[in-house]
Amino acid sequence: MNLSALQPQVQSLIETHKSNPDAAMQGICDLLQAEVAHYDWVGFYFADHDKRVLHLGKFAGEPTDHTTIPFGKGICGQVAESNANFVVPDVKAQDNYIACSITVKAEIVIPLFKDGLNIGQIDIDSNTIDPFTAADEEFLTWVNAQLAEIL
């Protein structure tokens, strides 16, 4: 799948649901999981900076027990602190990884910024080892920037 081909659909979801960000996020999760073969689980986590935890928002894929993640814990928690993209080609090689499913082989987490503050992130799990490229990072960074406009 050419990720840039999904941009008009993402823009349409955001435009259609600009007064309902939750619906936009659910639509984005559903779209990405359905259209990108190596996106097996797609979800948004949002930061509670006072409590230093992330809370799971909308997602597509198998339900997870990890609905709350402390800052610093796992890939998502590390991104909450670093404010940087984190691509994990093989989760077995990561010491600070929270296993969501035995089928997950790789993960990519891209922070979501609003007015310069890291308010959350998009988290994608893949059941394929090392599937993520620079194109995934660029596309997901773009998705977050578009979404931030309605948050």
Rank of each mutant, 00 (worst) to 15 (best):
N96W: 03
T141Q: 09
E81V: 12
F59T: 00
V53A: 01
K51G: 05
T141W: 09
S19W: 05
L56T: 02
I129C: 05
N96G: 14
G72M: 10
D30W: 03
E137L: 13
E35N: 12
L151Y: 15
D65M: 05
R52G: 00
G27T: 02
D40C: 02
T103H: 13
E81L: 15
S12D: 12
G72V: 03
L147N: 02
L151E: 10
D30R: 05
A47K: 02
V36E: 08
Q78T: 13
F139W: 11
A24S: 04
H49A: 02
I102V: 08
V79D: 01
Y97E: 08
Q146G: 08
G77T: 04
A34R: 15
A34W: 15
E149K: 14
I119G: 11
L140C: 03
L31P: 15
E62L: 01
F132L: 07
P8R: 14
V10I: 14
C76L: 14
I122N: 05
D115L: 11
Q33D: 10
I110M: 09
L56W: 09
V109Q: 01
E35C: 09
V109Y: 06
T128R: 10
V36D: 04
I75M: 09
A24R: 01
A134K: 14
H38L: 08
I98R: 00
K92W: 00
L54M: 15
L112S: 02
L56C: 07
Q11Y: 00
A145H: 13
N96V: 10
A135L: 14
T16E: 09
E138K: 15
D50Y: 08
D130T: 01
E137I: 12
A5Y: 07
G57E: 03
V88T: 04
A47C: 13
V104I: 01
P70K: 09
E138L: 12
D115E: 15
T128A: 10
A24N: 03
A23H: 11
T128F: 11
G77N: 05
D48Q: 11
L147W: 08
V91S: 05
G72L: 07
L13C: 02
I122K: 06
V91H: 09
G120D: 05
H55W: 07
L112G: 01
V36K: 02
P131I: 02
A24V: 05
L56H: 04
G120F: 04
I124H: 13
S101C: 07
S19C: 03
S126V: 07
Q33G: 06
K114I: 10
T128V: 13
G27K: 05
K51C: 03
